[in-house]
Every structure is written in C-alpha cells, then in structure tokens.
Design a protein around this nucleic acid. Sequence first.
DNA 1: GGATTCTTTGCAACCGGTTGCAAAACGACG
DNA 2: CGTCGTTTTGCAACCGGTTGCAAAGAATCC
Lengths: 339, 339
Amino acid sequence: MPVTLKDVAAKAGVSRSAVSRTFTEGASVSPLTRAKVEKAADELGYSPNALASSLTTGRTKLIGLVSNNFTNPLFLEVFDRFTRGLQDRGLRPLLVNLPKDETDPATSARMLRQYSVDGAIVASSTLPPSFAEAYRAAGIPVVHSFGRFSTAPQVHVVGIDNVACGRMAGETLIARGYRRVAFLGGPEQATSTQDRALGFLAALRERPEIEVSVSYASAYSFDAGRVEMTKLLMQDPAQAYFCGDDVLSVGALSAVQEAGLSCPGDIGIIGLNDMQMAGWQNINLTTIRQPVAEIIGASIDLVIDTVADPKRHPETRLFPCRVVERGTLRPLTDRRNAR
Amino acid sequence: MPVTLKDVAAKAGVSRSAVSRTFTEGASVSPLTRAKVEKAADELGYSPNALASSLTTGRTKLIGLVSNNFTNPLFLEVFDRFTRGLQDRGLRPLLVNLPKDETDPATSARMLRQYSVDGAIVASSTLPPSFAEAYRAAGIPVVHSFGRFSTAPQVHVVGIDNVACGRMAGETLIARGYRRVAFLGGPEQATSTQDRALGFLAALRERPEIEVSVSYASAYSFDAGRVEMTKLLMQDPAQAYFCGDDVLSVGALSAVQEAGLSCPGDIGIIGLNDMQMAGWQNINLTTIRQPVAEIIGASIDLVIDTVADPKRHPETRLFPCRVVERGTLRPLTDRRNAR
DNA sequence: GGATTCTTTGCAACCGGTTGCAAAACGACG
DNA sequence: CGTCGTTTTGCAACCGGTTGCAAAGAATCC
C-alpha cells in the first residue's frame, strides 16, 4: 500500500539513488532525471519516509516537548506557540506530559532516546535544573524553558529572572503606599516560588517599616489560591498580596469577593504571568507580564543551535518582565495611605 | 556515541538476533541468553531504537494529534487528557497545530505519512467532516474528536450531539420562563455553531409565543463575545442568551457587567463546554457540560482499534451532555416571569 | 578530434533494527 | 545409546532510505 522509493525508481526508469537525490536538498541531479522522477512521484503520490531517512542522516527533526504544567492556562499559549514555532522551522513536536509526581528524568529521557529526537525542550517552571541536566547527560540537546536561572548553568535556560520579578512586585506594592504586604506563593518546593519570594522579601527589606508576611498555597491553581486566601481573610489579612502566579491570583481574588470585600478597595492583588484570562475585563487582574513569545522563540532558536553544535556552552537567556496595570491594585497616584 | 544492538550483541557474545529477541515480547530466548543480554544492555545503557524497528514492524506507536483549537481554554484539558491517555497506552502524541486558515488536509496528511504515524486524531469542533475523511483516504486510520455527527459517516466521530445540546439549551431557557431568547453563535461556518443553532431553534419552534433571535460572533473567543454582546445591548437585547461556547459566554458576560447590568438579574446566559474557568466562583457560568474525559477515552480506544483493523466500519459515538447549574441563569423555581 | 575536467549516474554498503528459515542444541523416551 | 520432537540460535535478507565511490557521459579547451 505505501509507495516507496523503489516504486518511484521503477516507474521513472532510474536508480533508487536518483530518486533519493531528487528529494535531498543540494544533491546532483540533471534536470531531465529530476523531471522524470517528479512525474513518477506525483503520479504515485510518493513522499519520502522521514523515519527511514533519519536512520542514515541521524536527524529525525523531532523535538521532544516535555512539560508538567498541562493545567496552567498560561501553557495553552505556550503550547500554541511552541508547536507553531517548531513547525514553522520544519520541526515536529513530540509531546511528553510529565505526571506531577514524576520528578525522575530517566523514563522520559529513555523514551526520547528511543524516538531519536534531535533535541528536547523542557517547558516547566516547577522542575528543578537537575531534570534538564539529566537529559543533557543522556546525550539529548536540551533547553529548559521557564526554568531557573543558575550562576553555573549546566544546561541552556530561557526564561525570566524570578528574583527580579519578586523584587518588582515588592516595589510596585511599596510605590502604591501599601504598609502591610504579603507573598502568597505557589508550592514551596517549586523553584519559581522560591525565587519570587526571595526577590519580594529583598525589596521589602529596604523598607523595614512595612510589615511583610509569607504563606504558600498547595499548588498553582485556582482552588489552592482561593482556599489559602479564605484562610488568610479569617485571620488578619495584609493590605496587598503578591500571588505566586495568575491562576492563584484569580483564586485569591475570588475569595476576596466572596468575603464581601472589594479589590482593590479593601485588598490589593498583583499576579504574575499575564495569562489570557487576566485580561478578561471581568477579571481585570494587575499582573507582571512574562514575555512568552520571546521566551519560546529564543528556546527554539537555542535548541536548534544546540542540535547543530552539541558542545555549545550552556547559556542563560532571561527576558525582562513588566507590570501590566489593570484593576486589582490601588492606582499609583492614590497617595491616601502613603506614609 | 549512541549504543546499538550490535554493541550489545558483541558485549554479550551473542548474535544480533538474540538481542533483538530479548527485547521483543513473546520471542524465543533462553533464560541464560536473556540474562547475558540484559546484563550487557544495562551496562551499556542500551535501549532499542523505536524508529528503526518501526521500519520492519510497520508500527511507530506514533499518533498524530491534530488540532486548530489551540486558543480555546477547553483544549488545555483536552491536550492534557489526550497526551496522558496516549502515553498510558504506550503511544506517543505527535502534535500538529493547524493554522486557523488551513482547511486543506493535504499538507498535514503528507506530514503524518512522512512520519508513519500509526493513526491520527483530529481534535476540532470547527473542521468539517471532509477533513478527517481526507486523512482516511490517504490511508491514515483516523478519529475525529469533537466532530460533527453524520448519518452516513465516512470516518469515526466521537463527540456530542450539538443539535441535542442546542435543544437542551433552548428547553432550559424556556423552563426558566424567559420569553425573549437568543442564540449568540460562534463563527457561522463552524459545524458546531450550525448544529447548535439548529437544535436551539428547533426547541423554540414548539413555543411560537417566545421571541427568538440569532447572531454570530466572529470567533470562539472572549473578545468576539464581548464585542457582539456590547452591540446587542445597544439595540434591544433578549432576556437570555445561549452562547456558542464558554469563552464566548464569558465575553458576553463581561459586556453585560460593563454595561452596568447584572447577570442573571437583567440578562441570563448559558454557555457550552464547562471549561475550567466556568467553575471559577467569580465567573460562575451556567453552562452545558461536555464529557471531555469520556470523549477522549473513547477516541483513543477507537483509534487503537482502527489501527488494528483499518477496514473497520466508520462509527459515531456521541456522549450525552448535561446542564451545570451555576449563577448566570435565573433559577428554575423563580416563576415571576413565567407565563 | 582528442585530452581534460566537471557533472550525473548506478552500484553496493550501510543506518539499526526484525524475522523466516534451517541448523544446532537440548530434553525425553524407548 | 539412538531417535525424535521441541527450543534456541545464527545467518542472511529485508524494511526504506542515504551516500562514498568509480564509471559513464557531457562540456570545455586546445
């Protein structure tokens, strides 16, 4: 049923090599042979088997796209851009959905090797650097997107500076005159949470008169944010919260509204990510925007370069974030509560 | 660098066939040879090249997952479940992100053939049946998930009965005593929109005293819903709207709130899908739930069966939907406006 | 027209596996 | 111990391509 090189060669009356060469860029074929081959191929509906050719060329044009963030709305955009970006460059994404509890890279690395992916992209803000490093050790060119910055990187990392983002959030709250602020983080063991907390606290350390507290939600999810904020509201809530990410923020926002309080009137909230829904006017979340498109573009470029030169020195590319002003933080000009 | 069958054979002191057989289910190998091979393989860190073996076995365990709905929040859940489900059954999803304007199946079909996928799943509520049919004609076992029901199916379809859903929406609005209702559809050419409109109007036809109108948003998106509803509000809005899907609904909801109106007080809204965000308490959208998990489970089962028996007669599996009662429709017991 | 160079072509080996087949090894039995 | 049936094993061909090499053919030059 499937038509092969041999069939085309027979029909065109040429050797198999001739057919192969017609379909490989820059090979030497005379216009005449090429025409004969193309005609035969057309009539037979032939297209070369990419997998078979990968055997000899050593390239499958398959890129493993590995993530454990399949429930975070931001990742809808992430997957859209990754798949589109890879396709545009002639590559195919082989998706790996990592179970939340699977922190051992061995199984997925073996799988990627079995399918001879040319390279892999680990798209996760929660996996530790060691994960991608294991891929590299297994001989897979890899880029960790949305990963953690490291001063001695073993692996390519593309993302944002979470510490700087935390600091930015802190400064934003300070600038708006909040006197009692808090960090509502994601899971404590997530690297992104740790870094964001670090930066946030660092910013606040410069203003000792401002009261600051920290708590953690059990996951980067709406429910976790809502539960945690509900708990906080029953105690002695801060005036403004920097939430670990946008879904968490919306959960917290919902809890505030359910408690009959208003946002930003009673409590301010700033998130991080700028997922699609943050811009919905009936959510209208003030947040810090991650430049997703740039991160993904750079990740793809980097993985391609690394496939070409596997010994390439590990590189870290961090993109700047910026505050997206919406409606869950008291405006900057409002100085009523400023000291 | 990569370790092959031959290396293991050499190290274990056996033939290449022996190694191959050790790694193929149900082949005849003595316990002794198996032990020797496994030891050697372990020490070398060998794992068989799935692509090379696919050449002779004719199976890649690759399943093409094709979609053009990468921006619909429901599909975050869809991709999560598909990838997980395929992986659990030992299959690998090869993702194809179809540009919105690419309605010609030829390019993607060729691509899937080049990678010798065992089968494909077209996950889209907007593509016409002809799309998946073209895959089948190209010799690719295919299932159309979230596709359109047809009385003479050329291809496997798994999804919901959109006409029935439209009717269900109509009946729900009638039961709550709305006297002027409307359908706010997605793009008019999307099969799902057409069917939902059909069912909705059919339900209303039985109640000629109820006024009904129809309009279409330019896309299944928040903005499109918001824009369209804003327009409607400036004219002479209905009492309740059945929106083409949930994102559209939230857009419409937002427009209602921005106009200073309340929902369900002034205007009722019912959506379709029950995406994650519909359940967020600060959205709290009444909607019709699509049983996504069942649809995806059935799709995977069906594609596997079809790979095993390509001549299998095309089958349609539709799953029932149900109304999820939340806060954007006047409650059932409220009969103030009933006739 | 012949020598020289460049291009095009087919042969055959190879990529990393699988598998039909026949020979070898094994075990059971009389 | 010889015979027979059953595993187990290796050989070699094959899956669908690519590619180095040498021979054939075309083009160029004198």
